[in-house]
Design a protein around this nucleic acid. Structure first.
Lengths: 190, 190
DNA sequence: TAATGACCGATTTGTTCATTCGGTCATCAC
DNA sequence: GTGATGACCGAATGAACAAATCGGTCATTA
């Protein structure tokens, strides 16, 4: 059996998108890195965007795996939710491809990248919403719209970790856990 | 006494910035609208950015006045906080200059506009933080960092009103009030 | 027949030149 | 003499054109 060309292409594309982003990655370059003719890529993927989606979808699977690894079954639900959200934002801050994607979203606004970032966000929301849905059924938390709650929690974490750090001081993991618990779980009322 | 040239300039600049934004407003144009020589503008303001700041600072004062008008002393603190935040975001959505500013922030990223938008955000945060500070002292709510809490609340409102509407369905004023009360005041715990 | 890379039209990039703009200051009107 | 002005300046922007690059195709090849 000859070499697995599809695998070579996926590896090459992952490298290139991670290093240069979507726009700055050329199909010629991917072919070169993969040691494959350019035409070969088009026997597996209809176009550049399809190849891109495949790479990002793989990353999303990897991300969800990591998020699940963060869960500690002995901890209460809200603590695990915190650990999950925190791990997701760690991934977002450290994963090469993720970094490039968000940078390109901000700085170049490549349409294909805007689309894929929205897809990533949706994946995260679905992922969190599912956990919330279960928590509602098990009466761990009050009844609420799981999707909206997930959306709000994600935005809250981005606010606490990314935005607040930009204008004031960075918060530690423990501080964020406490704030999450105070604002969303216990509430500000006495 | 001759005409108040400074007032004419302020009125003209307000009109022009509101209609065309910062970048597309020229000093020649402001002078023309104000019926004033271009040099005259520079006897009051050191440069275009200073003039811009004056106009936006006036708008901030107007915005805070409107936000205060939204308060109903007979209502409980959290309801008034909701009314205030909602009014602030209404202002943001409806005020000509505000609309142009945020549009230019997103689409052109003019440095001077990025700066001023941050200034506006800081003004809102200080404004809300002050209310929260008083509420903490009066034991209306638990102890917390007023600035961080204000920041979080503002972001939460933007999430609920702007972001959620973009990806799903718009929420009514009452729904937002309920969500605000549920998530931040009562909390999700039983 | 799976793999390839020369080739194509479209888009992007680089370059040059003309225009516009923010800011100055010599002159003017009173 | 003083406050107001607009012609003028260099820098920045934009238009226009040429050159290079890129995504995608398909006749050829091994």
């Amino acid at each position: 059996m000859s070499v697995d060309r599809k695998k070579l292409i996926i590896e090459a594309a992952t490298k290139s998108f991670s290093l240069f982003g979507y726009k700055a990655t050329t199909m010629d370059q991917v072919a070169k890195i993969a040691n494959v003719g350019k035409g070969t890529i088009y026997t597996f993927y209809a176009n550049k965007e399809e190849l891109f989606k495949e790479i990002v979808d793989n990353m999303i699977v990897e991300m969800e795996k990591e998020a699940n690894d963060a869960i500690n079954p002995e901890q209460p639900f809200m603590e695990n939710l915190h650990l999950t959200l925190y791990r997701l934002l760690e991934f977002r801050r450290e994963h090469q491809l993720m970094i490039k994607l968000f940078q390109e979203e901000r700085e170049i606004r490549t349409p294909a990248v805007l689309e894929i970032v929205e897809e990533i966000e949706n994946a995260i929301i679905s992922f969190i919403a599912e956990k919330i849905n279960i928590a509602i059924q098990k009466k761990y938390i009050k009844d609420c719209d799981p999707e909206l709650t997930a959306f709000l929690m994600l935005k809250m974490y981005i606010t606490l970790i990314v935005d607040w750090e930009r204008i004031r001081k960075p918060l530690s993991k423990e501080e964020i856990a406490e704030l999450f618990d105070l604002y969303l779980f216990k509430g500000l009322s006495f």
